[in-house]
Amino acid sequence: MTDNFTYDEIRHDMQTIAFYNLENLFDLTDDKHTNDNDFLPMSVKKWTPKRYDNKLRKLGFAISNIGKSETGKHPALVGLAEVENAKVIEDLITSQHLQDYNYSYVHYDSPDERGIDVALLYNPNAFKVINSETFSIELTNGIGLPDYTRDILLVTGLLDEEEIHIIINHWASRREGEKETEFKRLASSNKVGEIILRLRLQYEDPKIVVIGDFNDEPHNKSIKQLLDGFELHNPMASIRSYSRGSTYHNRKWNLFDQILLSVNFLKSSNHSLELYKANIFDEDFLKLFNGPYKGSPFRTYVGKKYKGGYSDHFPVYAVLKNKKAYIMQA
């Protein structure tokens, strides 16, 4: 891995929005309110200060380079999944490769049983927060008791002085089976639909970005009903292929991490943010470079075995173009 990338000029008319599942970014302290027992120095995973610092450094390097080949700069907005608390976010944004970028963040503790949350990193020079709030998903388990999962985070703000609304998600996993858990992801999808309806009642033609680890593919019902029912566009759908995705499981690529945008990001205008491109950030340094899983994400852990990598997910990103911002800063 090299920490040296060279890029062309900084594009003042472009900004990157990214999403990254960080694979269990836990701190080193035992929290009695979360299920963090595996991620302690004396646990079976031996989550030591050295391993924690190594992960922060690696994640920071990855985040700092997302979209840089297109824009020449770090991303303006980064949705995060699998962060334990505000402390790990603060440790991340002050780590080696992010400390000079002055990132701020939006985070709320959620009732998730694993003790992990979603959050939003933002560059305060590019994005100004107007409002933020969370939405819970009401689920029950097989015996009718509450089944707590990650809240959905909504952040409204000004990106290059244009108002946008970002909805950050981490839907229920398929660990107990795809069909057996589908109802949970449909419940989250329905909640996102409710949020979009509320935004459209409150704002005129709002620009909405829905990002996250959906644990579903672009063709699954939970995603399709958002596209068909709420006029969203999924630029990730055409990227999905047999040999490419954001996660790799059972020798099969999945594209669970996606970015959906309201169709007004596709309309041509000289004075508004438009979708320029979307992609998976799967640079070689994020991949295993040999062995039977060559090319798949270089993970921090495989089960209880420490590998020392980044995450079991690749980030995904969308680059937005804004001609007005270029004119103002030229």
Rank of each mutant, 00 (worst) to 15 (best):
R11C: 02
A18K: 01
E23F: 10
D31Q: 14
H33M: 15
N35Q: 13
D36P: 00
F39V: 02
V44K: 11
W47L: 10
G60E: 01
F61P: 02
I63E: 06
G67N: 04
G67P: 08
G72N: 02
A76M: 01
V78E: 06
E82T: 01
L98G: 05
Y103D: 04
S104I: 12
Y105R: 13
A119H: 06
A119R: 04
P124Y: 13
V129G: 06
F135V: 10
I137A: 06
I137V: 13
L145W: 09
Y148M: 14
T149M: 11
I152T: 07
T156F: 05
L158N: 01
V192F: 11
L201K: 09
D205T: 03
P206H: 06
K207W: 07
D213T: 11
H219Y: 15
I223K: 06
L226V: 07
L227M: 14
D228M: 15
R240G: 03
H249A: 14
N254E: 07
Q258F: 05
S262L: 02
V263W: 07
K267V: 10
S272G: 03
Y276C: 04
G291K: 12
S296D: 08
R299Y: 06
K307E: 11
G308E: 12
G308W: 14
G309D: 01
Y310F: 15
H313G: 09
A318Y: 04
Y326T: 07
Q329S: 08
